[in-house]
Every structure is written in structure tokens, then in C-alpha cells.
Design a binder for these strands. Structure first.
Lengths: 103, 103
DNA sequence: CACACACATAGAAAAATGTCAATATGTTTT
DNA sequence: AAAACATATTGACATTTTTCTATGTGTGTG
């Protein structure tokens, strides 16, 4: 995979805002269009649109256009990438301290 | 577990900054004190200290004080919490669209 | 074709975050 | 006890992010 530091930050920015976390909770019940998401959030329409862009950029959410509606859903593929990335970045290859005279 | 939206953002803020991601990469080779981390990063000492606080607050990194040194390491327990959290928040319970006349 | 609707974009203001220099705190050494 | 060292905290500033209003774009409808 070999994601850059920058790419990793883009993925996890999805989960760095309370409103976006709430959007995940709502989308867990299934795909939903922006107008219905908006009903459940105390946000203006442009603000929601901004958050959906951040979420789609992360790959954790995908949008599907259907006429004038945008349907958003959680991406299992994106989730897998994020999981693999998290696992990789928190994996410890060695545990001994080589620092400050090995104290 | 039942983490709040706020708590989730605190966990994943750890991975929302390129320098912090780089710190994970460095800590993967084992526990390290702040002064040695500083050598490998183009940051001032107070800035590093700030990032280490964010990382410790996330639970993904733990600090261990040894005399005047602070030794930091990746926390496998914290990593597990983050993984479980990511898995939970991206889990989809239903996949059908109940939105906009089920289009 | 004009209008209504769903959503995106632009631009500006406010809030949060990242950064550094200066200083404080706590620990070890001389 | 004083000096040196490692790290944390404070305060200021710059950048980024969040948010809104206003407006634009594309789609369907009367």
C-alpha cells in the first residue's frame, strides 16, 4: 500500500470532527441522501456539503449521484484501507529501548 | 466501550497531522525519549512536546518518565481501542437505501 | 421554457490548531 | 547549592478548519 504521511492524515481527518463522526453513525443504518442527512444534523446545507467532501476525500464514504440526489454510504473498501493503515502505523517492530543508555 | 463522538475525535486526531504520523513511524522501532525524537524531526522542542501531549491524550502513545527523560512508545492497548472504534464506526448494519423513494 | 429542488462552490468570519521564542519546572551532576 | 539538562508551559502569531450567507450548477417538473 505505502501511503504517505499526508495521505494518512487525509484518511483520519474523517474522524476528527464530531459532526462527521455523527454522520458515520447515521450512515450505519444504510445509504442516505444529503437532504435526509441534513435533517438529522444541526448544520447548514453548505456545511454538510463541506463535511461530505472531507469524508469522500478520506475514502471512508462514497457518494452516488442519482438524478438531483447525492446518496452517501460508508465504503467497506475505504474502511479496510483505513484499518490496514491504522494497524500498520501502530505496529511495533521492536520493543526494547535503545535510548538514553538503554534505561 | 461506548465512546462518545468527542472521544473518538480525540483518538483520531493523533493521525491528523503529518508530523505526528512521522512520530509513529519513528516509534515503531521501539521506545524513544523526547530528545531523540527531536533529533529526527524538524520541529522545536515545545512543538514536539505539544504533539506528544496530543498523542498521549489519544491513548495511542504512552509516556514513561525516567529521571529527567520522557520515554514514549506506541501503546498496543491504545491501538486496539482505536481499531475497535474504527471497526465499529464504519460497520454498516443495513445496506438498503430508505431514502428518496428507495431509489 | 420557467420554476423549484438538491447540492456544490465562493467568499468571509470565527474558532481551532500548529508553531516558535521565552520561561518555568523538575531532575541530575558537580 | 549552583549549574546543566530534559521536558513542559505560556503567550503570541500564522495557518487551517469550521461555519455561515450568498450564489452557481445541474436536474426534474408544471
Amino acid at each position: 500500500m505505502e501511503l504517505s504521511n499526508k495521505q494518512i492524515t487525509v484518511i483520519f481527518k474523517a474522524l476528527c470532527d464530531e459532526n462527521r463522526v455523527q454522520i458515520f453513525r447515521i450512515l450505519q443504518h444504510g445509504e442516505l441522501c444529503a437532504c435526509h442527512l441534513l435533517e438529522e444534523l444541526h448544520l447548514s446545507q453548505p456545511t454538510l456539503s463541506h463535511h461530505m467532501k472531507v469524508l469522500c476525500d478520506s475514502g471512508l464514504v462514497v457518494g452516488r449521484k442519482e438524478g438531483k440526489w447525492m446518496h452517501y454510504s460508508i465504503s467497506p473498501e475505504g474502511a479496510k484501507v483505513a484499518m490496514d493503515c491504522l494497524k500498520e502505523i501502530t505496529a511495533v517492530t521492536e520493543n526494547d529501548c535503545k535510548c538514553c543508555n538503554n534505561q
